[in-house]
Structure formats: C-alpha cells, structure tokens
C-alpha cells in the first residue's frame, strides 16, 4: 500500500525530470558563471597567471569609479549608442510600419528583401559596411558627392564614429522593429476605427486617439527590448571600429573585452561585467513587471 503510494507519487512527479537537462545546463553555464563573475570582480585575478589570486574587496570598483576616467566615459558611450539606436529604431520602424500598413502589389517581395539585414551574418555585414564607409575608397562618400554633399570620415573620426555605428545598427534592426509594429498594427481590432469613422474623426485624430494608444504596449515592450539589446551590442563595434579611434567608441562591452583579453585584467573586467549585469537586471525587472501587466489584460 505504501510502496504503491510512493510509486504513484513518483509516476506523477516524474515529469519534472523532463526539465532536468535544461536545468543542469543552465546551472552550469549560467548560474555558476554568474556567481564566479561577481566573485572574480572582488579579486585581482589576472589572465594566464598561475599565481595566487587575492581577494581585494571593492578595490576594482573604486578603481573604476575614481581612477579610470575611461569607465565613466564608456558608460556614456554605451548609453549614447543604446538610447540613440533604440529611439531611431522605434521612430523609423513606426513610421515605416504606418506607411506600409496597407495592401500593395509586391508586398511579399518587399518584405522578403527587408528581411535580409536581419538574417545576414553581422560580422560579414560589418565588414561590408566598413568597406562602404572607407573614407578613401568607400562608395558612401561617392554617393554623397553625387548629391553634392561633403564626404565624411565615418568610423575613422572620433566625432563621427558613434553616429556611424548607430546608423549601421539602424540599418540592421529597423526592418525588424518595422515588421513587429506592422504585425501589431494589423492585429489591432477594426471596430474602434470603424466607430471613429462613423463619429467623423479625421485620419490624424484617429492616429493620435486610437492607433497610438492601442499600439502603445507593443511600442513600450519593443523599447525596453531594444534598449537591452543596444546595451549588449558587441560584434559591429568590435569589427568596424574596434572601440577606436582613440577609444571614442569603446563602449562597456568592448571595454570589458579589452580589459579581460587584451590587458588581461580579469578581476577588473569582471567587476565591470558585474556592473553591466546589475543594470541589465534592473531593466529586466521593469520589463517583467510591464509584461505581467500586459498579460493580465
């Protein structure tokens, strides 16, 4: 009787075992490394040194905030890149989505072509862009000159490097925000628009009073998701500018990479990483709260 009960209980609970492989992988590759990262952030660990690793408390953080002028600058550069590209993606994406929210001939082909930037290997496309932006031989300056505009040094100049990178980021992701917002627009209920038409609202009034409020959850969600994404961008910057010139595009991600694998300051890099992780954690909490609210509609 008791053994039957135990067998039955096991049989009912056995499904939990289904999640064991995923749990193990995530424990080993996520939870433990996170712990290790934070711990390393309080040590003076140096890459490839077999020597003793010493616990040095918050020294790495003190160094970041008071001794390393580039740290604060890299926070600024990271925010500049993330916020700039997020706002750009949303405004351009929303504009395009509104413009394209109709049926037209060649819609399928158009969408297919617009998917290319999302799919193509970012490293390869970064290489293509760095060729296009080459101040001497690149085609971009040539096309600008055709329009009678002066050329630019693009990624080769400290003042234009970040805007150039943001431009590439926009080229990469605006098609996606557009597709998501377009899907949102198409899924909006028709009745409010019909009711407003009957009430005699103009197209602009409809946009401000109906489309935007209804679309707001999509926009806000996308805003947070893209912001988090922007804080994590590595490939493009690393390939195109490598953080330069003169560290003018060395965002936190690049700085951490350089500190760890270039300067081999593993402890310091880990402290910077923990800091970045904390920021992302805070945004995630906000995002999650928002999603919950959306789900309860």
């Amino acid at each position: 009787m008791l053994s039957q009960r135990i067998l039955d209980y096991t049989d009912r609970q056995i499904r939990w075992l289904f999640s064991a492989p995923a749990l193990l992988v995530m424990l080993g590759l996520f939870a433990y490394p996170m712990f290790r990262l934070i711990w390393t952030g309080f040590t003076d660990e140096v890459l490839s040194s077999e020597g003793k690793i010493e616990f040095i408390g918050v020294a790495n953080y003190v160094r970041a905030f008071s001794e390393d002028p580039h740290f604060l600058r890299s926070i600024w550069l990271t925010l500049y890149f993330a916020v700039g590209s997020t706002l750009g993606q949303l405004t351009l994406g929303l504009g395009l989505a509104l413009f394209l929210n109709r049926q037209f001939k060649g819609e399928a082909t158009f969408r297919m072509l617009l998917m290319f930037p999302i799919i193509a290997t970012p490293v390869a496309m970064s290489l293509v862009w760095s060729m296009l932006m080459n101040p001497m031989m690149g085609h971009l300056n040539y096309y600008l000159s055709l329009l009678g505009l002066p050329g630019s040094l693009w990624a080769a100049d400290t003042s234009t490097v970040l805007p150039s990178l943001i431009m590439i980021e926009l080229w990469h992701w605006v098609p996606m925000t557009m597709l998501v917002l377009l899907a949102g627009l198409k899924s909006l209920p028709k009745e409010p628009f019909e009711a407003a038409t009957v009430d005699g609202a103009s197209r602009f009034q409809m946009f401000v009073n109906i489309t935007l409020p209804l679309l707001q959850p999509y926009v806000f969600l996308l805003l947070l998701l893209r912001l988090v994404h922007g804080l994590k961008v590595f490939d493009k910057i690393f390939v195109i500018s490598g953080g330069g010139p003169n560290r003018a595009s060395e965002t936190l991600n690049i700085m951490i990479y350089e500190q760890a694998f270039g300067a081999t300051n593993f402890g310091y890099a880990s402290a910077l990483g923990s800091f970045l992780l904390l920021i992302i954690l805070l945004i995630s909490i906000g995002l999650f709260r928002f999603r919950q609210r959306k789900w309860s509609y």
């Binding site: 590759l29 996520f30 290790r36 990262l37 390393t40 994590k232 590595f234 890099a269 923990s274």
Partner: peptide, 14 residues
C-alpha cells in the same frame, strides 16, 4: 537579457 560578455569571462576560465 544577460550580456554575453559577462558570461564569457567566467566561461573562458572554466
């Protein structure tokens, strides 16, 4: 959401 670079540091050692 977690940034990949922060995973990479401990991974490299592990």
């Amino acid at each position: 959401m977690a940034p990949w670079i922060t995973l990479l540091l401990p991974w490299y050692i592990i």
